[in-house]
Design a protein around this nucleic acid. Structure first.
Lengths: 233, 233
DNA sequence: GAGTGGTCTAGACCACGTT
DNA sequence: ACGTGGTCTAGACCACTCT
């Protein structure tokens, strides 16, 4: 922001952010046009555009052609969170990651999984249960269905050196996914796997992964008690 | 993408996306320079830059000066989710939102809240408990601390027409927040508020909101059983 | 030191939707 | 109809880092 330097789009963005934050520009109000701001800041319109576009993506501004740009009424701010790779998440905490495949068999998926995976009924799929441990302590329990017609090579995988998650990441591409976060009450089986008491509230992530319109895999991750997912704006 | 049209940055982005998705460019591999791609696609380098920048932000590419651009090894893809305004979330489902303030008093925050709010000990803060209902059914139970020195005007608020959340959104600006998602086991009190059984697993969101380095409010939202948070890539 | 991405500019045209 | 944001171009310089 020093006098002799050029104005960067971040300078503009910060200034605008501050004006919104200090309510110089109030929620619902229109702010000056790009051209006007460009003149005020002494930079090109493209620079202003770059700055405002970012704020609009963050949900702070609403922009419409012809109408102009205004401060969002309710900052429906979007937060981002990183999709965790279990191994990376555990090692990122300085702990050692191990995993144990508890079950691996072809099995007929229950109706809800069939629906999620958009596969014909009566066709067995690969079902794998895996427990991930951090320094030997149960971390997350994973029940996974793999679409064997989409990933035929999976029949030869033993998931010993690579957990199912890692194996799939290495072997197959994907281009989309659905994520559902929720909570459940630990069943006896889950409590045993995660070494906690039955009835405890556990954090759950259901994820379905796609590639080219086909479902690759659908997995439920049940985390140990006390697990937290964090993010910030 | 037609012949006579100009190439848009989205055209470039889609093409690149596809090459990654089809593993023409494999994870870890370097892709051609911007200038090279610009030539291939017959567009300006800025257009290629715009396209690749987006993919890098999405976590699909890793870019470094001098080194170049390569396909991310583990697509540490980031997902976005919208921070829900309770009222909007409920009304978005076609249900009617009401709320009930169960408690409103000055109180000394427990140590963990004091720490989160970065406030001196021995200073009471405003504590509000609110139940939100969807079509009359308990939806989420909210226990909120409000920093009265940061928001002195709150002393005059009765939270009848506007819930604490909405009141704060209207009255005070904020510029940051921390979010923690987790699960808990319903206590007797929580079970009664949410009309569920004690011991049920419940989805929890803890949120602390800042403005100008000061903490405005810290709230715990405990959702009804079965609540899900959804997102997709 | 050199090569790559990051950014700025000035100008132009286009797409869209409001008035 | 027309004003606003959206985008593209061609060129330039800078910042960073080092397959």
């Amino acid at each position: 922001m020093s006098k002799q330097d050029r104005i960067s789009w971040q300078d503009v963005q910060n200034e605008v952010r501050q004006r919104i934050s200090q309510r110089d520009w109030k929620p619902g109000e229109y702010i000056p046009h790009e051209a006007e701001l460009a003149q005020e800041f002494g930079c090109a319109r493209a620079t202003v555009n770059r700055a405002l576009r970012g704020l609009a993506e963050a949900g702070l501004l609403e922009r419409r052609r012809r109408a102009g740009t205004r401060v969002a009424l309710n900052p429906v701010r979007r937060a981002e969170f990183a999709i965790p790779l279990i191994r990376a998440e555990i090692e990122g905490k300085g702990q050692r990651h191990t995993h144990r495949v508890c079950l691996r068999e072809m099995r007929l998926p229950p109706p809800d999984v069939q629906a999620r995976m958009q596969i014909p009924a009566q066709v067995p799929q690969l079902f794998v249960q895996t427990l991930h441990l951090a320094d030997g302590t149960p971390y997350v329990f994973e029940r996974r269905w793999i679409n064997t017609s989409a990933v035929p090579a999976v029949e030869g995988a033993d998931f010993v050196t690579y957990s199912p998650n890692e194996w799939l990441m290495r072997e197959v591409a994907f281009d989309g996914g659905d994520f559902t976060f929720s909570a459940l009450t630990a069943s006896a089986a889950e409590a045993e796997m995660l070494a906690c008491s039955p009835g405890e509230g556990l954090f759950v992530l259901d994820r379905t992964t796609h590639h080219g319109g086909q479902v690759i895999t659908s997995v439920r991750l049940v985390f140990h008690p006390g697990y937290q997912m964090h993010t910030r704006i």
